[in-house]
Structures are given as C-alpha cells and as structure tokens.
Simulated assay, not measured.
Amino acid sequence: MTSPGRPLRRDAERNRQLLLDAASELFAERGLGVTLNDIAHHAGVGVGTAYRRFPNKEAVIDALFEQRLQAVAAVAHEALEDPDAWRGLVTFLERTLHMQFGDRGLTEIMNNPALGRQRVSDARDRIAPLIEALVDRAKQQGTVRADLDQTDLIFLQVALSAILDSTRAIAPDLYRRYLAILLDGIRPGGAPSPLPVRPLSAFQTHRAMTRNRPDVANA
C-alpha cells in the first residue's frame, strides 16, 4: 500500500485510473450494487491489483466523488477569472452540465440517498462559496436579477440534470433549450435569447418520461 504522501508509480496510477473509469461505467449501467471484483474485471486488471489500490467499493466511490469535486471547483475558479461576470456564470453552468452529461456513473452516486449525506455536505462546503462568488459578481455588474441567490443556481442545475437524464437517448442536446430559458429568467430584463434546440414532440416527450418504466416504455 502506498503511503499517503508518496505519489503512485506510473503503472500504479494507470491501474487506479482504469479502475475509476470502469467503476463509473458500471455504476451508470448497473447501479451501485456492483462489487469491487466486478470493477476489476471490467477494468481488465487483477482483483489483487484492485484491492491494492482501493480497500473496498466505498473507497472507489469516494475517489470518484473527489475527482468530480475537484473538476467542478476548477471550472468555477476559471469562471471567476473571466472579467465578464455573466459570461463566467453561463460558462460555469454550461460546462458543469456537460460534465454531468458525460458521467452517468457520478450521477448515480450523487443521487443515491443511502450514500449521499456526507458527500453532499462536502460538495456544499467546497463548491457553494464559489457559486456564491459567481452570483455576487454578476449582481455587482447588474447582469442578473437582484434577488438571485446562489442556491437558485443549485436547484436550476438539479432541474436541468433531470431533463438531461430523461432525454439523453432521444435528444441529447435538449437540455440546452431549457438552459437558455432559465438563463433568460435570471437576467434583469431584455429580449429573450434564441433557443438553440427545437422542443420534443408529444410522442418523444412521452418516451423520455417513461423510458425507465418497463410497463409503459414499449406501449
């Protein structure tokens, strides 16, 4: 086992990343019930190698969650460096939503109530101050409504994540339409933005809303 302060050898780090990538894929496909043995087989590494990198599946989940927090924090810091506060805010929302689109395994972790309390607290403590700073800058520049709160952005992301996940297989870019509508809603005024994606038909909407219900999905 590598000591906490010592960097992993190149092959050890490669195996660790293979395991994390495999775990993310399996969590997305089969949920959190997969075992560390399953993850090792999917990654193409030996079970012993997996247990040298991670003592159990929970350690894999923690490592994935930490990666996501670091990535979101990095996006927020880059957005705060943009002198245009509105552009920085929009960039943050667009990039973090795109990250969620490409990472269904992490979505499974984030939305699992049995495993989420401590991780949600960690995310709140590390990410919320950055989002608050993005909102405060936009308020100071007069580019968002004065009553906008940083928690509003969190709930907007939750709503857009649900749209993204429901329509991923039917219209993967559809969430961008609703992002544009929501962005117009947090601006203080002006003409509405052109919507980048057409709406779904009634039939497509039905398919999206019932895709996980075997009793009606094929109706």
Rank of each mutant, 00 (worst) to 15 (best):
S3A: 03
S3R: 11
L8T: 09
L8E: 13
R14A: 15
R16L: 00
R16E: 00
L19C: 11
L19S: 15
L19T: 14
A22L: 09
G31A: 10
G31T: 11
L32N: 13
L32R: 14
G33F: 04
T35I: 08
L36Y: 12
H41T: 13
A43H: 15
G46Y: 07
F54E: 03
F54D: 04
N56A: 14
E58F: 05
E58S: 07
A59L: 10
A59T: 09
D62C: 09
L64R: 10
L64V: 05
L64W: 03
F65I: 10
F65V: 06
R68H: 13
A74V: 11
V75D: 10
H77L: 07
A79R: 11
A79Q: 11
L80S: 03
E81H: 14
P83R: 08
D84Q: 11
R87L: 09
L89G: 02
V90R: 10
E94L: 08
E94C: 03
T96R: 00
L97M: 14
Q100T: 04
F101I: 09
D103M: 00
R104G: 06
G105R: 02
L106P: 07
L106C: 01
N112G: 14
P113E: 08
P113T: 02
Q118H: 12
V120A: 08
S121C: 11
D122F: 09
A123Y: 13
D125K: 12
D125C: 15
A133M: 12
V135A: 07
R137H: 10
A138K: 01
A138E: 07
K139H: 14
K139L: 08
Q141L: 15
G142L: 04
T143D: 04
A146I: 03
D149Y: 13
Q150P: 09
T151K: 15
F155S: 13
F155K: 13
F155E: 06
A159E: 01
S161D: 06
S161C: 09
A162G: 02
I163Q: 14
L164I: 07
D165M: 06
T167I: 06
A169P: 00
I170F: 00
P172N: 02
P172C: 03
L174C: 00
Y175L: 03
R176D: 14
R177K: 07
L179G: 06
I181W: 02
I181F: 05
I181V: 04
P188R: 00
G190Y: 15
A191H: 12
P192S: 06
L195H: 13
P196Q: 02
F203G: 13
Q204E: 05
Q204I: 08
R207E: 15
T210I: 02
V216K: 13
A217E: 11
A217D: 05
A219R: 15
A219V: 15
